[in-house]
Amino acid sequence: MLAVSNLTMRFGGLTAVDKLSFEARAGEVTAVIGPNGAGKTTVFNCVTGFYRPSSGGIALTHPGGARFALEKMPGHRIASRAKVARTFQNIRLFAGMTVLENLLVAQHNRLMAATGFGVVALLGLGSYRAAERAGVEKARHWLERIGLIDRANDVASALPYGAQRRLEIARAMCIDPVMLCLDEPAAGLNPRESEALNQLLLSIRADGCSLLLIEHDMGVVMRISDHIVVLDHGRKISDGTPEQVRADPAVIAAYLGEGDDDE
């Protein structure tokens, strides 16, 4: 599905990611973990097109067989064409807009095409009304799934923290991604919210969307990941199933050796 090969990212003199290669298989939850400063977020930003890697390749293959070289694509195309969606560590909702509007903005490209570049729909012609209805239906579907249906018309910033996280995930899912990238989705959640999040992520996987996540919360990682990649100082030190990684001496050394700067 996603094949990262020899990915290197330098900022000035600092090499944040050094010749990293790993794979994320279709229909699985792949987690990237590692101590602070290991380069997780950098990898993530490269995959989702926010950074342009210094060298190396990131290839995405759709279930239909279409292939995309993500390292060469502009950021917004990665979402619109390659269908890779993402969330942010510090939630980035459209704070002043309503919950429903947040989900409609996410369907921008499809709805925009239905408006005939604005002009047709401006005059009230064309198939835009139907497209808009479908968009609202899709939003309703996701609102029901994340349990926010009765808050659809509230301003997004008025939601409690956990609900904002779920909304951000629902918003990302509204672009119909083949792969959803989550940047520390469990950060700041209480155990109950964290459990609800796990269920949501597993149900998304069950729908056939692959997941790539960065996480600090080992509970979440171990419970829902199919495959874990461990980074330290920009290099891969371990790669395998949760059980394999847990037993890997290199991982233990990296975490314990770094003291408690993880968490």
Partner: peptide, 16 residues
């Protein structure tokens, strides 16, 4: 309006 609120989030949703 979404751009006014958060440009980076817009980019992540495939908006040019």
């Amino acid at each position: 309006e979404a751009l006014r609120e958060d440009e980076i989030a817009c980019r992540s949703l495939g908006i040019d």
